[in-house]
Design a binder for these strands. Structure first.
Length: 847
RNA sequence: GCCCGGAUGGUGAAAUCGGCAGACACAGCGGACUUAAAAUCCGCAGACCCUUAUCAGGUCGUGGGGGUUCAAGUCCCCCUCCGGGCACCA
């Protein structure tokens, strides 16, 4: 290579640049990885007395499937860049990782390959941890949490006992979602579009079962109201949770059944329309409907049919699409507001598990009731109208607007709808036939699972004292260990039920024979509080020490996929409130800020085995190195958007790193005697450096558009390349060269850690690059002294003029008018108006 | 049906506050280096038109249509398509 024949200028002695070297990530990365792996303190959080502000940076823990996928790579590349950046900004950073290690795939693998779930899971963890280390992720492994190990899940059991004590964990028989594929019950949150969240094509069935529930509804209002304060969460997630909680204000009103002692309580959000009620509609499973059915065989058959339709619709997620059917019971209800008798019907569009399972039907002012009434010829009665006098009669059904008023409703006529709702509910309450009430869509969290690989529920049933009433296991008995060597090949019932040594226990009360609960907990229990355990992962006396948690919490930044918006993220908020009420933590919410990254796409579709478009991170790392792979994941799109994986792009980043490598190694040793002030070219290069520092600092503080951060680094490097001759000749002093490369490497450190560590070493940087202070912007240096101002004539660009950066309006205007092209353009025309936006542009309006 | 996103060159994207549309890359094309190739470096590159060609010039252009403004990818109104969430929830 005919290189390094740099001519030295007098007075600017520069040592010879080194011969250029080739970038070999396959050599660099393992070398640094070995060093980092050997140093447990490198990424360890400091003590609470470090004097630094704390920063808890958390990425969602993975399920240990055995293979990292690109979604993980993206998630962790974002979190890792942030953690490293915050270290460099002087924070005491907690950056932990763990394993969401219970769950069905382990059982499936056991069935398929004959490997026990525990072995399979722990083996996968080893493999994935190795992949994470190859990625160069900055986790503090001393706080690692593995949810399937007894030292973790015993605290699930402990929490369960606490919740049982407080009445927050309870057992009830109810309709539950059953996935035939998983052979277990699912929580409402785990049913997506009528199908299982793990088996998108498997329709969930409804079964009547006695199951354990956690009383998340107790916190419904707090979970809802708290969303307003979570300003650091994406609006999308907050909206999804609001919808999911589904708070609805209204009233209960009792309708007496004519000629019977029965009464029907309806839930309505529009009690102001009660004078327009022309029937009462019951869900097929409503208790009163059952009473009527007892006396009438024909009716019973019809109701059963309605129930069947409803069940079918629900299971195929066609609820809302099915045709409304109903049957008149022949019975009548009495409207307590006007004493009117209205017929009682049973209809397939009334849900038993929402509200009271009964409604008053107001066909004139409700779309569904209207449709039903039209079909069955039930009467319509208008009881609200627009306030505007002389307005056209509204088309029915008319649900009213803000200004609608009540009509034909006795003493309430003339009131606005909102006022009428309030007053009529209060009236009902005063008279004892109703009350204002709030209904939620949110249901209690069903946590029982008829599966093996999960946390055993620490409850007992004594044949003598409580065959049906559960008794808690004593706290001192914990953990109730999950037995090994369990036959999970049979598919009916909980596998633990077939393990005699597990089931048989002693009753804590009478000392007689007792049975253990054989269901296990939903794995979402594990992930509801794991991030607290990170703060005190080895504690054997408690889930964690409160002081430790209170130091680190709330999480400053949580990063993960949006798919958990109403699963993990609502359960976690609930769990935090429970722990707060137990006095364990002070924070109301687990995470201050939440970031949901976009999906990784290939050929326009989400990567999946079935589509055959999966790109393996291992392949990418082997070919281009971890730095290039990670950096591409950040460069290809802003982190909140979907990212199309293009291997050529990774190659491009690898080329870029190669270029930086060549330049850095070439100039790593340049030295010069007593440096003078930077030369003009050096000044320009330093200006670019400081502009880049400003840009990237701003990106971390703001929008996280790391794609533009990286592009700004590329611009800097392109400018360095353009100045190579000047650096060789000494036209840019060695002091400037050193400053530029030092800055460049620090800026790259959050994005390409192996690379930055190697380059830092090469230039003789002191200490660990990730603990070196993030460079500060020198505003003076960053400022341009000459700027280009576009000049438009009638809004069209004509030319660009150069002016000093501090030019005032008059000077910019003068420069624009003096420009030849501009003059040519406006010749013979009248300048009507001149718009000068200092620092931005000039627009001449001419005629 | 309702609520959120999104649509910009051949591709990924940029334009953060209404001010040069396409930064930075990928793919492509041309050149240098080389016996040759790879690698590397330099250059070109929205579409169309005018021009023999150059130099230059012109028109159009951010999903579509209207509007506000000296100026619109950006603001307002209407519409189309794509992705996501919710949905007989009374």
């Amino acid at each position: 290579m005919p290189e390094n024949q740099n001519t030295l200028q007098a007075g600017t002695p520069v040592s010879s640049p080194n011969p250029e070297q080739r970038f070999m990530p396959s050599e660099i990365e393992p070398r640094w990885q070995a060093r980092w792996d050997a140093d447990a303190s490198l990424y360890a959080a400091e003590g609470h007395d470090s004097g630094k502000p704390k920063y808890y940076c958390l990425e969602m823990l993975p399920y240990p499937s055995g293979q990292l996928h690109m979604g993980h790579v993206r998630n962790y590349a974002i979190g890792d860049a942030l953690a490293r950046h915050m270290w460099m900004r002087g924070f005491n950073v907690l950056h932990p990782m763990g394993w969401d290690a219970f769950g069905l795939p382990a059982e499936n693998a056991a069935l398929k390959n004959g490997v026990p779930p525990r072995e399979w899971t722990l083996g996968n963890i080893v493999a994935m941890k190795k992949q994470m280390r190859r990625m160069g992720l900055s986790y503090d492994w001393s706080t690692e949490v593995t949810t399937c190990l007894p030292d973790y899940y015993r605290w699930n059991q402990w929490f369960f006992l606490k919740m049982f004590e407080k009445g927050l964990a309870f057992r009830k028989k109810s309709k539950v979602n059953w996935c035939p594929e998983c052979q277990t019950v699912l929580a409402n949150e785990q049913v997506v579009g009528g199908c299982c969240w793990r088996h998108e094509d498997t329709v969930v069935e409804l079964r009547d079962l006695t199951q354990w529930f956690l009383r998340i509804t107790k916190f419904a209002d707090e979970l809802l109201d708290g969303l307003d304060k979570l300003e650091g969460w994406p609006e999308k997630v907050r909206t999804m949770q609001r919808n999911w909680i589904g708070r609805s204000e209204g009233a209960h009103v009792d309708f007496a059944v004519d000629g019977s002692s029965e009464k029907i309580t309806v839930f309505t959000t529009r009690v102001d329309t009660i004078f327009g009620a022309t029937s009462v509609q019951l869900a097929p499973e409503h208790a009163v409907a059952k009473v009527f059915a007892l006396e009438d065989d024909a009716l019973r058959g019809q109701i059963e049919e309605l129930l069947e339709q409803q069940k079918k619709a629900r299971e195929t997620d066609a609820l809302g699409a099915i045709e409304k059917h109903g049957v008149a019971t022949g019975q009548f209800a009495v409207n307590p507001f006007n004493g009117e008798r209205v017929p009682i019907w049973v209809a397939n569009y009334i849900l038993a598990d929402y509200g009271t399972g009964a409604i008053m039907s107001v066909p004139a002012h409700d779309e569904r009731d209207y449709e039903f009434a039209q079909k069955y010829g039930l009467p319509l009665r208008r009881v609200i109208a627009p306030a505007v006098t002389g307005a056209e009669e509204p088309v029915l059904p008319y649900v009213g607007e803000d200004d609608a008023v009540v009509i034909g409703s006795g003493e309430w006529s003339g009131l606005g709808c909102a006022a009428a709702q309030e007053k009529m509910a209060a009236f009902a309450k005063a008279k004892g036939f109703g009350t204002p009430t709030v209904t939620y869509r949110l249901k209690d969290w069903g946590v029982s699972r008829q599966r093996y690989w999960g946390t055993p529920i620490p409850m007992l049933y004594c044949d003598q004292c409580s065959p049906d009433e559960p008794m808690p296991v004593a706290e001192s008995e914990l953990p109730i260990l999950l037995p090994e060597q369990v036959d999970i090949t049979q598919t009916n019932g909980s596998p633990l039920g077939r393990v005699a040594e597990f089931v048989n226990a002693k009753c804590p009360k009478c000392g007689g024979k007792a049975r253990r609960e054989t269901d296990t907990m939903d794995t979402f229990v594990d992930s509801s509080w794991y991030f607290y355990r990170y703060t005190d992962a080895k504690n054997s006396k408690a889930p964690f020490d409160s002081d430790k948690a209170n130091y680190w919490f709330p999480i400053d930044q949580y990063i993960g996929g949006v798919e958990h918006a109403i699963l993990h993220l609502i359960y976690s908020r609930f769990w935090t409130k429970v722990m707060r009420d137990l006095g364990m933590v002070k924070n109301d919410e687990p995470a201050e800020r939440l970031f949901t990254q976009g999906m990784v796409i290939k050929d326009g579709a989400k990567m999946s085995k079935s589509k055959g478009n999966v790109v393996s991170p291992d392949d990418m790392i082997a070919r281009y190195g971890a730095d290039a792979t990670r950096m591409y994941a950040l460069f290809a799109a802003p982190p909140d958007r979907d990212l199309e994986w293009q291997e050529e792009g990774v190659a491009g980043i690898s080329r870029f790193l190669g270029k930086v490598y060549r330049l850095t190694t070439k100039y790593s040793d340049v030295t010069g005697a007593a440096e003078a002030a930077p030369t003009p070219k050096g000044q320009a290069l330093l200006r670019r450096l400081h502009q880049t520092i400003a840009k990237i600092t701003q990106d971390f503080d703001g929008r996280w558009h790391f794609n533009t951060s990286i592009s700004s680094i590329m611009i800097l490097v392109n400018e360095i390349t353009a100045n190579e001759a000047a650096m060789d000749s000494g036209e840019i002093t060695s002091a400037t060269v050193r400053e530029v490369f030092r800055g460049l490497i620090l800026l790259l450190a959050p994005f390409a850690p192996f690379f930055a560590a190697e380059m830092w070493d090469q230039i003789g940087g002191e200490g660990v690059v990730f603990r070196t202070a993030w460079p500060l912007v020198d505003e003076e240096l960053a400022r341009e002294d000459e700027i280009e101002i576009p000049v438009q004539v009638n809004g069209k660009l004509v030319n660009v003029v150069k002016v000093p950066a501090d030019s005032d309006e008059a000077a910019v205007k003068a420069a624009a008018l003096a420009d030849e092209k501009v003059m040519a353009r406006i010749e013979g025309k009248t300048v009507v108006k001149v718009i000068v936006v200092p620092g931005k542009l000039v627009n001449l309006v001419v005629k």
